[in-house]
């Protein structure tokens, strides 16, 4: 992109308005992509909180959501394709859990993570097969794809919608977790899996609900993300997926507010790196951040330390 064009302005900044007009697009992009990462990161962090599983397939479910939209928008009107995409994605997330993770409930944890990697591999290959490996153009969604100008920067509506929608969804989710029966069950299971099982909590139901919520948020995130980066390829979701996971670790894995804050920090930081003209390092930076946080605060910003019982 135009990193080289913008880069020098960042350091020169002849006047305040120049500085802002040069860097505002990056800040906006950072907030927007941060919100999108947040929606994916919640899926990771919730699943990890309950199953202690890094769901490597989550990024691919995010991509499948994009493809669903691409194919359905070609034949169906928006008011049908939008809900259908969400329903199909949720269905996929649910079935992946039932087929690939549930049978391994009593297996060592490494087995279930390997199964997640297997699912990711399968989904990627399946998408490659169906699409022929070519990049598809993501459809233009009304309203959120509309251009809008803020101060001197021109951007798409989605940039503004994302943080708002993200916050609304997160607040709703936190309400759900804190004030409903299933939410209470989720908290109990993530505190102590074995004991909650003994207490008669329907573990499988709780896990399914977790995957449904995670997939739903991934589907929403996918719509927002691909309205910005319109090319959909079979591996398009892998990198945002990994970054969202890093965000979850950064915020303290298992903590929803942590994941959201971590995602915004990573989204913004990554765009600052781009503004500095180091675009090729924006991915590497995210992981460098991960390693730094693991060195200094392994439990993340909001994580709780755990002690193993001997």
């Amino acid at each position: 992109m135009g990193a080289e064009d913008f880069g020098p302005h960042f350091s020169k900044g002849t006047s305040m308005s120049d500085f802002i007009s040069a860097n505002l697009p990056y800040l906006l992009a950072g907030i927007s992509v941060g919100g999108q990462y947040a929606l994916i990161a919640i899926g990771y962090t919730m699943v990890y909180g309950i199953l202690r599983l890094i769901n490597f397939a989550h990024g691919d479910i995010f991509t499948v959501a994009a493809y669903c939209m691409v194919y359905m928008n070609a034949t169906l009107p928006l008011y049908l394709s939008l809900p259908l995409t969400i329903i199909l994605t949720v269905l996929l997330g649910f079935s992946v859990e039932r087929i690939a993770y549930k049978p391994l409930r009593s297996a060592p944890r490494m087995s279930i993570m390997i199964s997640a990697i297997g699912v990711s591999y399968l989904l990627q290959n399946l998408m490659w097969y169906i699409t022929g490996g070519l990049a598809k153009q993501y459809p233009t969604l009304p309203f959120i794809s509309n251009p809008v100008s803020i101060y001197t920067a021109t951007t798409k509506m989605v940039t503004l919608v994302t943080p708002v929608l993200t916050l609304v969804l997160v607040v709703a989710l936190v309400q759900l977790i804190n004030h409903t029966k299933v939410g209470m069950a989720m908290r109990a299971v993530s505190k102590d899996f074995e004991t909650s099982k003994l207490m008669g909590i329907k573990i499988n139901k709780v896990i399914s609900v977790t995957f449904i919520i995670g997939s739903f948020l991934a589907a929403v995130g996918s719509m927002l993300y691909f309205s910005n980066y319109t090319a959909v390829t079979p591996t398009a979701g892998a990198m945002p997926g990994l970054k969202a996971f890093v965000a979850a670790v950064f915020g303290g894995i298992g903590s929803i507010p942590g994941a959201v804050i971590g995602a915004f920090i990573i989204g913004i930081a990554e765009n600052i790196i781009k503004a500095l003209g180091l675009t090729s390092f924006s991915d590497a930076f995210t992981f460098a951040l991960l390693i730094i946080i693991l060195i200094f605060k392994p439990t993340g910003l909001f994580g709780e330390p755990q002690q193993e019982k001997v």
Binding site: I54, A284, F287, L294
Partner: peptide, 30 residues
């Protein structure tokens, strides 16, 4: 990489090594 990460729980090793591989890939193309 092992110096900080291997003192932590083993889950972190998976994600830290995965991240490390991505960093290396970017650095070598710099």
């Amino acid at each position: 990489i092992g110096l900080p990460v291997l003192r932590l729980k083993s889950d972190y090793l998976a994600i830290a090594t995965l991240g490390f591989a991505e960093i290396i890939r970017a650095v070598f193309q710099y």
